[in-house]
Structures are given as C-alpha cells and as structure tokens.
Design a protein around this nucleic acid. Structure first.
Lengths: 221, 221
DNA sequence: CCTACCGATCGGTAGG
DNA sequence: CCTACCGATCGGTAGG
C-alpha cells in the first residue's frame, strides 16, 4: 500500500532535495539571488515555502549548494579536456566550446551575488572553488603552452596563466549569442548547437592565439 | 533674506535633481537595480523617499536617466579618441585605457537589469544608446582597420567590427583589477592609476591584435 | 511536510 | 519638499 506522507523514505527526501537544487539552479542563474524568492522556488517544486527550511538552513545555504555543484561539474569537465592527448590548440578549442555550451551564461551575476549577498566565509569558499576547480584546468593549459615555448611568457609581453584563463572565459562569454541559447531545446537541434559552438570556439581560439592583425606572407593561414 | 523652502528657485530644483542622479549612479552601478531602494537613494541625498517622486515618475525612470548619462558620456569620449590623428593601434590603446578607467565596471549587471527590470520600450531605448553611442565608435575603429587591410576581415577568419568592439570591451573588463579601482581616490594617485591603465591597455591591445602565440623570427616583438 | 504567522522592507500615493 | 500611510512581498519561525 502507498506510503503515508508522514513517514517518507530517505530516498524521497533526497529526491525532493535534488529537485529543489535543480530548480534553484535554473532560477538563480537566470535571475540572480535577490530576484528569486524562496516562495517561487518552493512553488516550482510543488512545495510550500517553509518546507525548504527542512532541507536547507536558509536561502544562502541553498544558493551555495547550487554554486558548488556548478563549479565542480564544470571544473571536472575542463580537467578531462586538459588531460586529452591532443595538441594544445585543439584542447583549447574543446574548452572554449564547453564554456559556450555549459558555463553559466551570466557568470558576472554570480560574482556580483557572491560579493554582495554572501557572508565572508561563504565568499572565501566560493572563491576557492572557482579558482581551483574551475579556472585551474584552463590555467594549466596555458601554463603548459608557455613552458613548451608555444605561448608568449610574461617576459615576452604575454599574460600569466590565470589571466590567460580569465581571458578565454571572458571572450567565450562575450561571444555567446542567441543561436547557442539553451532555451532552444528542440530534440534534433542539440547537434546543431554543438556544431555551432565548435565553430565559434575555433574562431575564439584563433583570435586569442594569433590575434586580429592580418597576416602577410608565410604566416597567413 | 533667505528663501523660504516653499518657493525654491529653478536652479535649486536642478541642483537637487543632479544630486539624485549622481547618487543613484553610484549606487545602481555598485549594487544593481533591485538592491538599491528608493529610500537609500533619498537619504543619501538628504531627502525623504517620497521627495524623489517630485523629480522622477518612478524608480525605473531614474534608472534610465542614469544609464543614458553613462552611455552618452562614454560614447562621446570614445568618439573623440576615434577621431584623433594617430595610428590605429595607438587609438585602440587609448580606448582600452579609457574603458579600464571610466566604463561601468560591472556592465553585465547593467545588462541583467535591463533584461529583467525594464519594460520593453525602455529596453529598446537603452539597447539603441548602447549600440550607437557606446559601441559605435569602437566598431568604427575596427571597421577602419579592416578596410585598410590592417585587420583580418570576415573572409580571413576575423570578426565583424561590432563583435570586435564587444571583444575589446569584454577583455578590458576582465582585465580590471584592484589596482585600477576607483575607490583608491588619493589625490596624487590619479596619475598612477592612469599610468597603470595605459600599461594594461597596451597589453590588452597587443594580445588582441597579435595573439598569445610566441613569435619566432622577424615578427618577434 | 503543512498552516499560520512574524517583523522588516519594498515602491508608490494622498494631501498638504 | 514633508508626514503619514497603503498593499505587497520578503526571509524566516512556531508548532504540529
């Protein structure tokens, strides 16, 4: 016979928690911390607002869980790309394509919320997740390129690996446009989105590595 | 004898309005639209909250005035840089330095607020101010470079002038760091800030034009 | 997991 | 330009 609501199994509790996190993820990333009320989150999950406080101590803790999940997932994917046995430029293209498709489209909102809505301890934690988990793999790629002499080092007018990683991140975000938008979630369009992202990524990496200046003579390509 | 409060001169009205706009400018750009209450703005001006509604119909209209002023001022400065009789690269460096020092440090917050807090008509207006007034002069610089054959055109793997302008904008914002922060407003430090911005701008434009790849042979710098 | 409720704060209005 | 006030909404708690 069906379980009464009172004695929920632990799996159901976990299911509810996952649903809350997924819903909060979607809303926080689209609208920002302040613009998303706990009531809206709860109702989108089929719950009343006080029920959220059974799973999370407060709104900030739910937000932190969302951020942690995003940064961990992105960081792991970028680390897998870094470890591929492919030329540096190809891995950079894959990383850029991944960022176009899967990174939070409005990462600056995330930073803004971190700065103004989190207490000092949480802010420090997120900063560490971001720097190590997320930017780390990208910075390693650029560091590798510099050590192998492919990329300009600091003494040759280049940027340090972390700044380079930020640069790739910013450029990718600035090159996001509607044709890569997640909302166009038609089944067969996923392949098209990925194809478009790969082409965009190739352009981004080409400009980042070789610049906008027109090449004359042997360097043209 | 002193004027009674009841019959304020038009100049005083204008002064108060200017003060409101300047205060709102500072707060909106730092904290975003929603996070700044009309009460906080009013009290920072030495007024009560309902007094704001004598100068602006509602909060959104005040926000629009702030945005309009920022984009117009930035756009005019960039247009003056574009018209200078200097090599393209030098003008790009000046533009990047200007963006580092004077552009809204959190332009993505501005975009986010536009998207989610303004009605359709206002959003369209701001979009036009941004595209024509602000990005226009930058795009013209890149268009000039492409016409003169200095920069890669679309058919050579380059980006169109507007995308190029966005790129310069994003890179400049991603290269903002604390040593260029406006809050360090010590008198004699203004020169240092400008010097630091010019150096940063040179690095930005160098990477944007020539890329991160290490040059071997005659192209080395 | 719910109902019922708290104090605080929001943007905006009435009326002078 | 002020005092006084409105309805709506916020994050969070009490108690079951």
């Amino acid at each position: 016979m069906a379980r009464r609501r009172k004695d929920l199994a632990p799996e159901d509790l976990l299911e509810t928690r996952k649903k809350i996190v997924a819903t909060a993820h979607r809303l926080f990333m689209e609208l920002g911390y302040r613009a998303v009320s706990t009531r809206v989150i709860a109702e989108a999950c089929g719950l009343t607002q006080p029920a959220l406080y059974h799973h999370f101590a407060d709104k900030q803790e739910l937000y932190l869980e969302v951020i942690r999940e995003i940064l961990a997932k992105n960081g792991q994917a970028l680390e897998r790309i870094r470890q591929r046995e492919e030329p540096l430029e190809q891995r950079l293209r894959r990383a850029a394509a991944y960022l176009l498709l899967h990174a939070p489209p409005n990462m600056n909102i995330m930073f803004h919320d971190m700065r103004h809505e989190l207490d000092e301890a949480s802010r420090a934690a997120v900063h560490e997740w971001f720097r190590q988990g997320f930017v780390g793999p990208l910075a390693s790629l650029f560091g590798e390129g510099q050590r192998e002499g492919r990329l300009r080092g600091l003494e040759e007018g280049g940027a340090d690996p972390f700044s380079s990683a930020f640069l790739l991140l910013s450029i990718s975000r600035s090159m996001l446009s509607t044709d890569l938008d997640k909302d166009k979630t038609g089944e067969g369009l996923d392949g098209q989105r990925e194809q478009a992202a790969l082409e965009r990524a190739a352009l981004i990496v080409d400009i980042l590595l070789h610049g906008m200046v027109r090449r004359t003579g042997e360097n043209a390509g």
